[in-house]
Design a protein around this nucleic acid. Structure first.
Lengths: 217, 217
DNA sequence: ATTACTATATATCGAGTAG
DNA sequence: TCTACTCGATATATAGTAA
């Protein structure tokens, strides 16, 4: 009702009718909003003057921006995750060398991968959380396949920028649950060599979420 | 998480952690959202595929647009109210003829008012509700003043368009409570004459809500 | 692993009412 | 009139657990 920037004269009865709830409910809500620092109130004889605080406006704005990014732009485009280099079991190279994966990587990610993965151990809670979120977002998916020897499951990938410099991708096996605290990164070149990395070094990965259109089912 | 248009693989546990509530709560909410027709669900062994329906997206969009109109444009700009002409006690002319009001009207509304008010009786619930809303929105305010004889209270005004043709203003005494079912309209000319109005005729008034900037405190 | 039931705990709502 | 308290009713959340 125009209460961002100016105080607006309202009464709890008034608002209650408009919103279809009881007067007491509005009273309680206004008190709560005031305690949360989202509105300022000034009681008068004929009701009260209510005004959004900067913090209140900010709260609305963040909901608005959140919705806009969903409705207009699609999905948040990039998630930053930081982790520490560690040496894995060398399995990465084995998987990537499989023709069934390699050809899909070339086709869907646009580069011929170096035969090895950079393993990053996620330490902070923020990074672990970001890693979990990733699972829910749409991904570029590599189909599973069979060789004479065994079956290889489907893999989810996200294009990524490593240390704000090198292009590559994050890969996550749909199956394994080793995944939750680890980020596996592939790239056209040997990232360990490129950045002179040794175990324990920190690496920042910007993961790109594909928009609904370009991602494959 | 990109579930507008595509189904997204989630689990209730997964979402519950992310939102900081119990798994059961998510389960209940997803069921409810499905019943409300806002999402589609497809249960699988590893969780469920969730997708916003058109109706769900529409719901989000309406919240988004609501917030946008507040955060970007300010306040809804115009409210339409319809009422029936009736003959008042002629008090309107008395008030408007007061120099203290008249000069402020010229200054703040931009016209020299005809010495009389057009009284509209609001009939429908919609119009009565719109009238009430008006009280809460920011207005152009005429200061109260004293003459040798008596005191005149402050008055709230809104610029208005009458029958989509004549410019004028809606005035509401801050004091009186006669106001809730009546709209008092002033204009530079005699509206009764201009529109050949007689008692009982319907008149449509588009009331303009001033943006926070231009309105005076 | 999942989802989702039932039962109990917690939070919210609204009637009555005081100030 | 107004705001906002108390308190019983209602709704929502979580624990435990089945499928």
């Amino acid at each position: 009702m125009g209460a961002q920037g100016r105080a607006v004269q309202v009464s709890t009865t008034n608002l209650a009718e408009k919103l279809g709830v009881a007067q007491q409910t509005i009273s309680r809500h206004l008190i709560k909003l005031e305690r949360l620092g989202l509105i300022e109130r000034h009681l008068t004889a004929r009701g009260e003057l209510v005004k959004l605080t900067d913090s209140g406006t900010e709260e609305l704005r963040s909901v608005h921006l959140g919705l806009r990014s969903i409705l207009e732009a699609g999905v948040p485009t990039v998630i930053s995750i930081e982790g520490e280099v560690f040496t894995g079991l060398g399995e990465g190279a084995y998987y990537i060398s499989q023709k069934g994966y390699r050809e899909q990587i070339i086709g869907k990610l646009g580069f011929d991968p170096y035969l090895g993965t950079l393993n990053l151990k996620l330490k902070s809670n923020l990074d672990l959380q970001a890693r979990k979120e990733l699972d829910a977002y749409p991904a570029i998916e590599l189909r599973g396949f069979k060789t004479g020897l065994r079956t290889f499951g489907p893999v989810k990938c996200y294009k990524a920028l490593i240390n704000d410099k090198a292009e590559g991708a994050v890969v996550t096996a749909l199956r394994s649950h080793y995944s939750t605290s680890v980020l596996e990164v592939i790239a056209p070149t040997d990232l360990r060599d490129l950045f002179k990395l040794k175990d324990g070094d920190k690496v920042c990965v910007k993961v790109f979420i594909p928009s609904s259109q370009q991602s494959s089912a």
